[in-house]
């Protein structure tokens, strides 16, 4: 998995230490710690994992193993407006694939990538549980329901200026 090189600031390291400490530095709480840390930084680059490893006293290999095992954790930063397409079964049978194709075409990126300007990233989700609105697309916190390929341009246009 590719990763981004980052240099952590003192205060970032302190923040990670604080999160680890709030779980008493217990190795058993690794996943909870990673959730919190990713919530803070948006992603989990190798440098961040190193600090967690040191504090919980577990090997970096174990942390890397856990981060790559769970799809919720990511080692690359998301775009400013992360686009997630629900590909659960309900959305699949109501045409999610075509919507996904359209997003790929419009953004010029593949699933798991970000646009060069860092504005949008594209991921697939397994069922957000809003099957009544299938097919469903999320951009950041906002959920769009009953999307057809024709709507894609308009959705992206909402984020044109920022």
């Amino acid at each position: 998995m590719s990763s981004i090189k980052v240099k952590l600031k003192e205060k970032d390291i302190a923040k990670i230490q604080e999160i680890c400490k709030s779980f008493d530095n217990k190795p058993g709480d690794l996943i909870n710690v990673l959730h919190k840390v990713q919530g803070e930084f948006g992603y989990l680059p190798a440098e961040v994992q190193e600090v967690v490893a040191e504090n919980l006293n577990v090997s970096l290999a174990k942390i890397y193993g856990v981060v790559t095992f769970y799809s919720f954790f990511t080692m690359i930063p998301k775009g400013k407006h992360p686009v997630s397409i629900c590909t659960g079964t309900a959305c699949y049978v109501r045409g999610a694939e075509k919507v996904l194709e359209e997003f790929k075409k419009e953004l010029g990126i593949k699933v798991g990538e970000s646009t060069p300007d860092g504005k949008f990233s594209l991921t697939c989700l397994r069922c957000v549980g809003a099957c009544g609105l299938a097919p469903v697309v999320q951009v950041g916190e906002k959920t769009y329901g009953r999307i057809a390929p024709d709507d894609v341009k308009n959705i992206l246009a909402e984020y044109e200026d920022n």
């Binding site: 996943i31 909870n32 990673l34 856990v66 954790f73 397994r126």
Partner: peptide
């Protein structure tokens, strides 16, 4: 305890390993 997006973690032994902080 929070899952992190792995279907197999619904299986009870996997779920327990996940709660213990492992893959």
């Amino acid at each position: 305890r929070y899952g992190a997006g792995a279907f197999v973690c619904g299986e009870e032994t996997a779920l327990i390993h996940s709660m213990e902080g492992s893959r």
